[in-house]
Nucleic acid binder design. Structure first.
Lengths: 225, 225
DNA sequence: TATGAAACTAAAAGATTATTTGAAAAAACA
DNA sequence: TGTTTTTTCAAATAATCTTTTAGTTTCATA
């Protein structure tokens, strides 16, 4: 049984979604503002539907907060005129977005798809493996071609974040936000670059042609591919 | 050319909508009852504007019937935005609703939005595919004949704009306006030409005979055919 | 088919973004 | 405390992307 938190200030839309999803057998909780959402999120949900424009702030903020501590799937509900800016949403770690107005069919499909992805991934053990690299996300140990690699705490955090978001590009500012506790004094982007460099030195067989930590020029870094 | 079925028993409102939409270049058919609507729906339309209160029954019923066999976009016209009605509307699979009285501008906006959504979002993702080319409009990744293609930010913007406006020709000045932030210092048209050239080099199997980014002499560029 | 306008191409200059290095500051450890 | 490790930052270098320039080709049409 999946439980879904609906964060949407438009009463009608919120209600409409609620009815549809409950009909499909999902449990739902409706809230209408960021603050209510924060309160509810102390409980556990399978997925969050998150409007961007809310009376007490932006859904993007909440997304960022959630991602500090949780990998729960998040789908944004966006007004169609903000669609172009939704690449930002992915940067904040959302899993998908849907433009309003949307049909019920589309909503259900997306929810199913996201839930399927998230359970497949989290169902696996905490050992991640790609090419010669093996990372035990729980024990925090890393081996490369069978050899144990010693990473510092920061290095491991970065690697883990990239792995957990494999398939997406993370911008430098998002990486910094999520690795260094939010409100901490300003961290220079180059500090991140230097950590990336050390990671590469420790992991990549050929530093000039990284296979694991790949630069996406003008944007940030991504794992693999 | 989009065709719209207007199902509305108030002759004046129906006529008013008809005139406005035809002025905007839509084809329209006006009917005034459920039965007439059922008859017309044997033909094909791009969108249905559907009043809820009709002399021979509720628009909700018709919506339900339509959804048994079709995903055609439906926008409800509601007398007063009673929440209950609209929850039902969503439940039956409508795409949007407009509360009477509404302005012409609002009507046109909603129609445009719904039509766009229904064509772009009709699948279950924003992955665009044409011949050997596949573009993930959300994640900004492009593959050509299965190979990942690395585009720069500007190149991707141009490609996306052309794809989103597939079927129409975009003039150079429009492309420039929409890709470079408007008020930025003047951008030479040849700058665009050069970007197009690089895109072609990366995407086209035969640069001399482009299949994807096609020049319309004297005007601009268009995607495909 | 000769012509001028429009589009294409290649190469270089200019601008931006990444990587690397080294050295200083901070934190962790014994 | 002194030593080692880690982290941060700044400056130099390198890589990549963007724009401009100038010359060539293609196109519509007279």
């Amino acid at each position: 049984m999946y439980s879904i938190l609906i964060v949407e200030d438009d009463v009608i839309i919120n209600g409409g979604i609620k009815v549809c999803l409950e009909k499909q057998g999902y449990e739902t909780v409706s809230v209408y503002s960021l603050n209510e959402a924060r309160e509810e999120l102390k409980k556990s949900f399978s997925l969050v539907l998150l409007d961007i424009n809310l009376p007490d702030g932006s859904g993007l903020e909440l997304c960022k907060e959630i991602r500090q501590s949780s990998e729960i799937p998040i789908i944004f509900l966006t007004a169609n005129d903000t669609e172009e800016n939704m690449i930002e949403g992915f940067e904040y770690g959302c899993d998908d977005y849907i433009s309003k107005p949307f049909s019920v069919g589309v909503l259900e499909q997306r929810i199913k798809a996201v839930l399927r992805r998230s359970t497949v991934q989290s169902g696996n053990s905490d050992i991640f493996s790609y090419k010669g690299l093996t990372v035990d996300l729980k024990r925090m140990s890393v081996t490369n071609e069978g050899n144990l690699v010693k990473l510092s705490a920061t290095e491991f955090k970065i690697l883990r974040l990239l792995i957990k978001n494999k398939g997406q590009v993370l911008t430098r500012s998002i990486l910094i936000d999520r690795i260094w506790d939010c409100d901490e004094n300003y961290i220079d982007e180059n500090t991140l670059n230097v950590h990336i460099r050390r990671l590469r030195q420790k992991l990549e067989p050929d530093t000039k042609n990284p296979q694991y930590i790949v630069t996406v020029f003008g944007i940030g870094y991504t794992f693999g591919e």
